[in-house]
Write a protein that binds this DNA or RNA. Structure first.
Lengths: 335, 335
DNA sequence: ACGCTCAAGTCAATCGATTGACAAAAGGCG
DNA sequence: CGCCTTTTGTCAATCGATTGACTTGAGCGT
């Protein structure tokens, strides 16, 4: 029942000091190549594995990054996670995952857990209703903050943290413009709400473009789910007729709308128009394939991760990626 | 630029020893309620956060659990992760995530990282081709193993580790039986391969039931992706006509088949039958809704997690959850 | 032969928390 | 009053790795 070998086991076995072993294994100078080789050989023979807890205790460094997400069952967050994990693994970091389901309390718990574990940084998509006070411990300047934090996907106002997000105002505008072109009698906004900057900006951009054109719309805010899209679209189709353009806060909602269209015998891309946001992988395979405004999840995920590990110099940056219109077949072509 | 407060900061400030502080904060005896209150109050005032690295160094304990996955872009693994994360959070563990993309080398790296971090255990879905030799360090008996490991989703033969999986042989049988009932001229197997027990068992059960009935099938092994389903089904429909029943290793493949059917103007549930496995969330929303054999991902995820944290007593268990036939509309009803 | 530099190592303190062994004070009991 | 228990704490060692300061011996130039 022998425990894991330590530096001093190797030292004893080779006949040198633990300092020498530590130095050799990390490839520093101060040990001759010959001794270093013997040390490395013995380490391999013994099956030595570094104890990062001990190393981190001494050096106050760590290669763990916490990633704070809200909802894995929304494919878009899953996609963000994929890109983030990829970027982080590429730079030798390790991922601590937290799923906080839009719950500020859970988010606080995860923050604390991350501090306890001594992570070197955090990538965070803030939960609904997160304000500066929630992030207080991370904001203190002058080396006070336990670790740097970078926000992704959702930004926060009045928070001096680097943020990588989609340009949601532009996204909303694009949706409005395309729907306007399609020339529907009624335009309907589905989803979003007031809980995140993402939702507010997207809707604001949408309203802005519509107002410019002097065109009204019927707003229906609600959860980001297929069910919400299905039910709300069904209601609109029943009371408002079938000549309507649906602007959906998320592809997920749009999928629900598509189901509703099918149930009502209405053809997306002909009678009605449906446009989503995100361009999640499934969008290309929906029935019919969904027209959507693509969010550059890879860029956002990679940039946020890179910014975190490369160290944030100077003032916190706030970068937005431009959305891209992805034409498939659910938006009617102009009259 | 004051660093994080430590036990001894609290001790100094309250006027007791660090021992007392440690004891009090963890609610042990040996400190009076009154002193303990003062200590807790001061800890809160100072914003004390425990340093788990230091604590773990001393106690050789940790509340981190490594979760080793292969492919987040397959929704079924995403669903497993959701359930696992949920169960782990419920027992106060935190998740250290690794995505190893069916690469044994990456899997080894993750194993090592987990040892370095000193995780208390691992939940693992083994990569393609994983053998006992890959898991060697985890198998040594008598307290030698660095941490306990529980396999989920995919089992491994000749490996003395607890395993929680779906009953894949039964799953394959169900698929064959339903397709037999539908009475197609040709029955086609899509996906799987020889890389995992899951794939082998599922296919074996399928063959078994078909042989019993004395019915042939055309096998097409390949990757678990929509694209593979689409292409292979297209080919079958072209050369073999439209009276075919498709048994798909995964819902993902089945979705591809559905697209192929649409492209070929063939109606699933009427002309052809399509049956998948997993019952992923999307299956209920495909077009048409997919008939599938459901895998109890919640049970598997929760059980594996619970088994790990509650400590594996006695001999390693190997438990299989029974699959469930989920009838929707892509399998033709019997003649 | 002397002083100097450099390479190759070693020493010992340190990171922060935990815990077995011990100590002092208070209370109980005959 | 003396002895024994509890209660409430403290001491000091310990977990494993890192690192600034120091030592030793060899090599070199003059």
């Amino acid at each position: 029942m022998n425990r894991r070998p330590t530096l001093s086991d190797i030292a004893k076995s080779v006949g040198v000091s633990t300092s020498a072993v530590s130095l050799a294994l990390r490839g520093r100078a101060r040990v001759s190549t010959e001794t270093a080789d013997r040390i490395r050989a013995e380490a391999a023979r013994l099956g030595y594995v570094q104890n990062k807890a001990a190393a981190g205790l001494r050096t106050a460094r760590s290669d763990v990054v916490a990633v704070c997400l809200n909802d894995l069952s929304n494919p878009v967050f899953n996609e963000f996670l994929i890109h983030i994990e990829e970027a982080l693994r590429g730079s030798g970091r390790i991922v601590f995952l937290g799923v906080v389901r839009e719950d500020r309390e859970l988010q606080q718990q995860f923050l604390r857990a991350a501090m306890e574990q001594g992570v070197s940084g955090m990538l965070m998509c803030p939960a609904h209703g997160t304000g500066p006070e929630d992030l207080d411990p991370l904001l203190a300047g002058g080396g006070q903050a336990p670790f740097p934090c970078v926000l992704f996907s959702r930004g926060l106002d009045d928070v001096a943290l680097p943020q990588f997000t989609n340009d949601d105002r532009a996204t909303g505008r694009i949706m409005a413009e395309r729907l306007l072109e399609a020339g529907h009698r009624e335009i309907c906004w589905l989803g979003g709400g007031q809980q995140t900057n993402t939702a507010r900006d997207r809707y604001a951009g949408f309203c802005e473009a519509l107002e410019q054109a002097g065109w009204p719309h019927v707003p229906r805010h609600g959860p980001t789910s297929r069910a919400f899209g299905f039910e709300t679209a069904s209601e609109r189709l029943r009371v408002g007729g079938s000549d309507v353009g649906f602007a959906c806060f998320s592809d997920l909602i749009a999928f629900g709308v598509l189901s509703a269209c099918e149930a009502h015998g209405v053809r997306p891309g002909r009678d009605v128009s449906v446009i989503g946001v995100d361009d999640m992988a499934e969008a290309a395979f929906s029935h019919p394939p969904l027209t959507t405004v693509g969010v550059d999840k890879a860029w956002i995920g990679h940039s946020a991760a890179r910014h975190l590990v490369e160290g944030a110099e100077g003032a916190p940056v706030s970068q937005k990626s431009p959305p891209s219109y992805v034409q498939r077949s659910t938006v009617r072509s102009g009259q």
